[in-house]
């Protein structure tokens, strides 16, 4: 099958690759770039497990062809922690037990990065509404909402700027 050359900037690193036009972005991230932190859940765009940020906006990477992302800036869970230091959202998820099996976690974290970049001081209800985009089968969501609000506070207090991490 014929391939097309595309350029992606993934977690700040620019890469040019040759992909089949039908290859999904999530498969390119996982198979071609080895970034297996982005998981596949429902494969039809409902569950949000495969969420990544494309030019700062969350997308479903399981229903996006990689060629559609040509030239885009992509951020995945692998871009959150800086070496040994976890992102405030990761810290807060750990502290509040915002995860159990961990499978929805990378997609949920990326969705929450977006939520906090748009509104650094969301109410719990606003968080609840916005994470309805992503399914979690384990936690029942309460600890995720708690974690996002806790992380927002840490990030606002300037302990560490979220944008600095994600660029």
């Amino acid at each position: 099958m014929s391939t097309r050359e595309i350029t992606l900037t993934v977690n700040g690193r620019r890469t040019t690759l040759s992909v089949e036009p039908r290859k999904l972005l999530v498969d390119v991230l996982r198979e071609d770039l080895g970034l297996v932190g982005t998981h596949i859940g429902c494969e039809h765009g409902v569950c949000g497990t495969c969420t990544v940020l494309r030019d700062g906006r969350s997308i479903r990477s399981c229903t996006t062809f990689a060629v559609q992302a040509d030239g885009a800036d992509i951020r995945t869970v692998e871009g959150l922690a800086q070496g040994p230091e976890l992102h405030p959202l990761q810290e807060a998820f750990w502290e509040k037990q915002g995860l159990q099996c961990g499978y929805c976690t990378p997609g949920m974290l990326m969705r929450c990065v977006e939520i906090l970049e748009r509104d650094p001081d969301p109410t719990p209800q606003s968080v609840r509404e916005q994470i309805a985009s992503n399914l979690c089968r384990c936690t029942g969501y309460a600890t995720i909402t708690e974690a996002v609000c806790a992380a927002a506070e840490v990030m606002r207090s300037g302990a560490r700027a979220g944008t600095e991490v994600a660029s």
Binding site: R30, L35, V36, G37, T38, H39, I40, T76, V77, E78, L80, A81, L86, Q90, F93, W94, E95, Q97, L99, C101, G102, Y103, T105, P106, L109
Partner: peptide, 19 residues
């Protein structure tokens, strides 16, 4: 206590079968 399993999952390094 904080779960000892969590750091790898938070980093997307869970090591699932698909990985």
């Amino acid at each position: 206590i904080r779960r000892v399993e969590d750091p790898r999952f938070l980093r997307g390094r869970g090591g699932y079968i698909a990985d």
